[in-house]
Every structure is written in structure tokens, then in C-alpha cells.
Amino acid sequence: MTLTVDQGSNGAAISVVIPVYGCDGCIEELCTRVRLALMGIGASFEIVLVDDGSPDQSWSKIVAAHEHFPEVKGIRLSRNFGQHIAISAGLAAATGNYAVVMDCDLQDPPERIPDLYAKIKEGFDIVLARRTTRSHSIGRVLGSKAYFFLMGRLSKGAFDSSLGTFSILSRKVINEFLRFNERERHYLFVLRWLGFSVGQIEYDHNERFAGRSSYSLSALIRHAFDGIFFQSTELLRWIVTAGLVFSFGGIASSLYFIISYFLHGSSPGWTSLFVMMLICTGAILVSLGVLGLYIGKIFDQVKERPLYSIDVVLERIRK
């Protein structure tokens, strides 16, 4: 499924796309601060809140914000599809010449939106916000650095772990982003693949305004696995390389034992052989498991189901 949206004559100048999950305590403050930041720019704007099947009262808070603030557009997905799919749904609904993407927990300060807008007006197509400080735990920060380092090795490029989803895109980039139809997607990885001219600003990462992160340890690990396995095929090449190493190691060991037999006679070595059998069997099973994961994702993709399903849309008709 290819999603494309062209700005209409009544479209806003700036759309702010915010996926919402487990943030019912942040929405009122979020909308208030985003509106104040955008009103200072002096351009027309809209705030697109995408409820990604949130289990709390987020949707009722979005409805209240829609009734109170004329610029708020609410989209409720039929279930949880994941943050990056929710971003895609928000971008598909955005009408602005530019779209700001940010999290709902106010760790990304809305007050820096004018800086993003000023930077992209310098002629960039994408502007990313780089976190100079992090409010996450040390373990999560180190895990993020390790993950992006590994992704850089897999994709033969450098990834900056201090970059997040806080960014602004031009309409050209939005339309190109919406041409992507793969299910396993990561917002930053798609932008990196697209290319275009990229600028940066720096900001301090704030503490979460309310509630707690919906990314548990298991969810973070699953998200990391999806990125490592399904954003690049380089891992398959690593498996082939490992297989060749094991094969050459086996041939060398065979030659050693044959020569040793003729020179010294048979010698005990059942423990080492048993260990090598376990290592080789484990490597084979892991390799088959990785291949199975790739095949499973291919199966999901070829079914060509829509990326998401929308339950409700709240939007005021422009006159």
C-alpha cells in the first residue's frame, strides 16, 4: 500500500505529528505548549495526535483537546500498531508544507519547534534534533549506543545515538516517506535511506512530564532485534562468513588429526570433539532461526495488508 498526501489549498503551513501511547497525563500540557510555540512563529498550523491503541484515557483527552483547541486533529487507530506506524499515519493525515514529528511525553520541548522551523527555512529538507543531554537511565543510554553502533556496522555507515524522532520534514520528504510500504520500519532509518539535505539543532532532553515509558526492557529488546534483523541483509552475510569460518576450521582440524594419527597414533580428544559439536550445532540452529525470522517477515509483507486501520478521525472542516 502506498500512501501519498499532497497539500491542499486549505492546508496548514506546519503540521505537528505526535504518536500517543500511555500519555493521558501529558496531552493537555502538550497541546498548550505546542500551540504557544507555533503561535510565536506566526504561521498557520495543525496538531495531529495519533492514538496508537493506548490502553489509558489518552483518547478521551484527545477528544477534549480537539473540542478546546481548534487546531487539534485526532486520529484513533483501531489497535496498537507501534510508534513508527503511528508516525506514518500522522504524516499521511498532515496537510502542512512542513511536518514536525515529536514524542508525546514532553521530553522533546515544544519550545524548540521554532528553532527547527528556522533551520529548515535555511534550505534544508530535513532537520533533526540532537540530544546533548539524556534523561534516560544509564543502562538505556548505553544500550542505545551499542544498538546504533551495531546498526552502523551492519549498514556500513555511522548512526548517531543522540538523535531521536524530534525533527521537521519538508513536504517533499513527507511525500517520499509515505511511498514506503514495508511494515518493519524505523523513522530515522527511512530518513537516512531517503537522503536529501539534513540540518541539525541541539537541545536538552527533558524528564518525562507524567506517567512512565511504554517501552519495557522486553519491548526495547524486541525493537532492537527488529532493527538489526530487518533493516539490513548484512547479518545474513555475517552468517555466511561464520559458516565458512567453521567449515575451514573443520577442514584444518581434520588435517591435523590425520597427520597426528600417522605421527603419534590415536590420541584421546572426545571432550574437545563434544564441545565442538555443541558449538557447531548451536551455530547451525541460530543461523536457521535468523533465516526463519527473515522468511516470517517476508510472509507478513507479501500478504500486503494495510499498515494500519483507522477507527475515528476528529477534524474540523476548513471553510
Rank of each mutant, 00 (worst) to 15 (best):
M1K: 00
L3I: 06
Q7N: 03
G8W: 02
S9Y: 04
A13Y: 10
I14P: 10
S15E: 11
S15G: 04
I18A: 02
C23Q: 14
I27F: 04
L30N: 11
T32D: 05
L36Q: 13
L36H: 12
A37K: 05
G40Y: 01
I41Y: 07
I41G: 05
S44C: 02
S44R: 08
F45S: 02
D51E: 03
Q57V: 02
W59F: 12
S60R: 14
A64H: 06
A64T: 11
A64E: 13
H66E: 09
P70T: 11
G82L: 00
A86H: 04
A86C: 05
I87C: 08
A89P: 00
A92P: 05
A93D: 04
A94V: 05
T95S: 15
M102T: 13
Q107A: 14
D108K: 02
E111V: 04
Y117M: 14
E122D: 13
L128Y: 10
L128V: 01
A129N: 05
R130V: 07
S137M: 00
S137L: 01
G139M: 10
L142F: 12
L142V: 15
G143F: 11
K145W: 10
F149T: 10
F149H: 11
L150K: 01
G152K: 12
R153G: 03
L154D: 07
G164F: 09
F166Q: 02
S167M: 02
K172N: 10
F177E: 06
L178G: 10
L178P: 02
N181L: 01
R183E: 09
R185N: 11
H186K: 06
F189S: 14
F189W: 10
V190I: 15
R192L: 00
V198E: 14
G199C: 11
Q200E: 15
Y203K: 02
Y203E: 03
A210S: 13
R212G: 10
R212Q: 12
S213G: 08
S213M: 06
S216Y: 10
S216H: 11
L217E: 13
I221S: 10
D226R: 13
D226Q: 11
I228K: 05
S232C: 09
S232I: 02
T233K: 04
L235D: 05
L236I: 02
W238Q: 08
I239F: 11
V240A: 05
V240K: 13
F246C: 07
F248V: 14
F248T: 08
A252K: 01
I258E: 00
L263N: 05
H264F: 15
H264T: 07
G265H: 09
W270F: 13
W270M: 10
S272Y: 09
L278D: 08
T281L: 14
A283C: 02
I284L: 09
I284C: 06
I284T: 06
S287V: 01
G289F: 15
I295G: 00
Q301I: 02
S309L: 09
S309G: 00
S309M: 03
D311V: 06
D311I: 07
V313W: 03
L314M: 13
L314C: 12
I317T: 14
R318Y: 04
K319W: 03
